Amino acid sequence: MKRCRAFQLETGQLVENVRSVCRGKGKILVGTKDGEIIEVGEKNAASNTMINGYTQGGIWGLATHPFKDVFISASDDGTIRIWDLADKKLLNKVSLGHPAKCTSYSPNGEMVSIGMENGEFIILMVNSLTVWGKKRDRSVAIQDIRFSPDNRFLAVGSVESAVDFYDLSLGPSLNRIGYCKDIPGFVIQIDFSADSKHIQVSTSTYTRQV
């Protein structure tokens, strides 16, 4: 056996392990561990990603940008992915190292927050996808995470039947400024009032509390 030619998969994204290859009519289809199907031209070696996907587990987090046609998803495979709604394609992905359970954009579109299965939450800057701050005050999964309408506060709801609050104006140290505990059932969803002064919480006991 002698190698005749090698192809570099230039997709603009990190390509996980190749799992299958199919050749025919001047093109090669490549299937990856990341659930992607990539088409490669034999003559020009150009790569075209036809399908993007996740590697394992469910997609738990989903949030739309407040004024752009993009959305973000978060999954058990430890990544968040940003998608273009109009072109129906993957724009970027970030590996977080732990399963992600929820995500949300700030109302001004400058930040995105992600709640993790291990109790940690992370805030990224949208333009650069760099970490602005991260914190872990709980040891169980974060179920929902929300910015207040005035972009000042972050509410983090967990399986510990609690909601923690953080004042983002105090900087990336993310010191907890308060919390609500002993909520009946674990937190499923959080909503702020329009004036950012109150929240309502939906729980696993099918109750809504304000």
Rank of each mutant, 00 (worst) to 15 (best):
S75K: 00
S113F: 04
V201I: 15
A100D: 01
G133L: 08
P184T: 07
T130Y: 02
Q143A: 09
I123D: 00
N175V: 09
V131Y: 01
H198C: 11
I177P: 05
D167S: 05
S158R: 04
G157K: 01
V112N: 03
F121R: 06
V159D: 12
V187C: 10
G185I: 04
I72L: 15
A74Y: 02
A155L: 03
A86Q: 13
Y105D: 09
R81C: 12
H198N: 13
A194L: 13
S193P: 11
D182K: 08
S196G: 05
F192G: 06
G178A: 14
G133T: 04
H98T: 14
E120L: 03
D182M: 11
F192R: 01
K88T: 07
T79N: 10
K134T: 05
A194E: 14
N92V: 03
M111Y: 13
D195E: 07
L174D: 03
G171P: 00
L91S: 07
Y166G: 04
N175K: 09
L168G: 04
E160C: 11
N175F: 04
K135L: 00
N92L: 13
N118G: 06
R152E: 05
N92A: 15
S75A: 15
D182I: 03
Y206K: 09
L85Q: 14
S204P: 04
S204Y: 07
V126G: 03
E120P: 00
L154N: 06
L154S: 05
N118M: 06
L168K: 04
S148N: 10
G171D: 01
G185M: 08
A74L: 03
N127K: 12
A155M: 03
F192S: 06
Q143I: 01
D167M: 08
Y179W: 13
G119Q: 04
G115V: 09
S75N: 02
V94N: 02
A194M: 11
D137P: 05
P172K: 03
F165W: 05
I123A: 02
I80G: 09
S193G: 08
R146W: 01
E120V: 00
I188Q: 15
F165G: 01
V140C: 15
L129A: 00
F147A: 01
F192K: 03
P107I: 06
M111Q: 09
P184M: 08
S139G: 11
S73E: 06
K134Q: 14
P172I: 01
S113I: 10
Y179Q: 14
K197E: 12
G109Q: 06
T79D: 05
Q200W: 12
A162K: 10
G133F: 02
I145C: 05
W132Y: 15
T103W: 01
F121D: 02
Q209T: 12
L170P: 03
R152Y: 00
D191N: 10
S75T: 02
E160M: 13
V159T: 10
S169I: 01
P99S: 14
S173Q: 12
S204G: 14
V187M: 09
Q200D: 06
S95V: 10
D84W: 00
L90P: 09
K135S: 13
S73G: 07
L91Y: 06
F153H: 12
A162Y: 02
C180N: 08
N127P: 07
